[in-house]
Design a binder for these strands. Structure first.
Lengths: 149, 149
DNA sequence: TATTGTTATACTCTATAACTATA
DNA sequence: TATAGTTATAGAGTATAACAATA
């Protein structure tokens, strides 16, 4: 809309573009998760807890990238729904080790499958090469390049 | 982290990836705009007002995608900084026509150049083809394909 | 003293609602 | 009645601060 010296920048701005795309995907993902009674944040927590390593709340907060007070509230909700269990660490009694319950693991698997399906539908307008380039670009831009999933 | 039936989805999730990239760019853009005393929302408003068509606050709100009450506050700030002027429409005295001042236009040009520069720096890790594919993908995913900037 | 988890509080962002004035 | 703008209020989401327990 301005492009003063023909700098050749994205129009609309890259930020606007990214915001729109992210918002659209977030809405699609939220929709896809409704049947499982969890939101994307909660799925992220379940995912962080799904590894072999037992995590405390603080460690989970670090993985997910939220404050430990936020994690407290998230765990409250997940525990209320029977998806995780708190257990006092015997080694360091300040820590709560948080574990997935069987229901939590089931929920994670189902919700993750739904997320995958939603992502695939979302990417459907792109041909295979463009979709691959998008993922490659996003990984490069976050500083990740070889997690390859 | 889960990938139950080998669905081959992005890991970390596409939503997480998009969120990280958008956040990183937003921080870079915010940084780049500091010297001009405006934020990305305000630049978006200035941009919406920069066309030949005179816009009311409600029309500007529609273009930018915010509520008219939010636009009121945004215009307040821009007017305080002398970047826009409110003028009662003679044709419909309910409407405020909002115009860029010369300072507002200068600010827009400078801020937009800074945004462009920030975007170019941000995209620097990508080779030319990947950057082009990223923009193409984002436009396709928002439903825009031929705005071409 | 430092860390963990919890709780209460504050803050940011934005939309909704209520109001005035215009149409 | 309906719309534009303003203002006050509310809500979501999240971080900060204060606290008790533990190290």
């Amino acid at each position: 809309m301005v492009d003063p010296q023909g700098a050749g920048c994205a129009e609309p701005g890259l930020g606007v573009l990214l915001g729109r795309v992210q918002g659209k995907l977030a809405r699609a993902a939220a929709q896809a998760l409704v049947p499982f009674g969890v939101d994307a944040h909660e799925v992220a927590v379940l995912g962080a807890l799904s590894g072999d390593e037992a995590l405390s709340q603080a460690e989970a907060a670090g993985r997910v990238g939220v404050d430990r007070s936020t994690m407290s509230a998230l765990i409250d909700g997940l525990e209320d729904h029977g998806l995780v269990e708190r257990r006092r660490s015997a080694l360091d009694r300040r820590k709560n080790i948080v574990r997935l319950t069987p229901a939590g693991r089931e929920c994670l698997v189902s919700a993750d499958a739904a997320r995958c399906a939603a992502e695939r539908r979302f990417l459907a307008p792109l041909d295979e090469d463009t979709a691959a380039a998008l993922l490659r670009a996003l990984r490069l831009l976050t500083g990740e390049s070889d997690t390859h999933g």
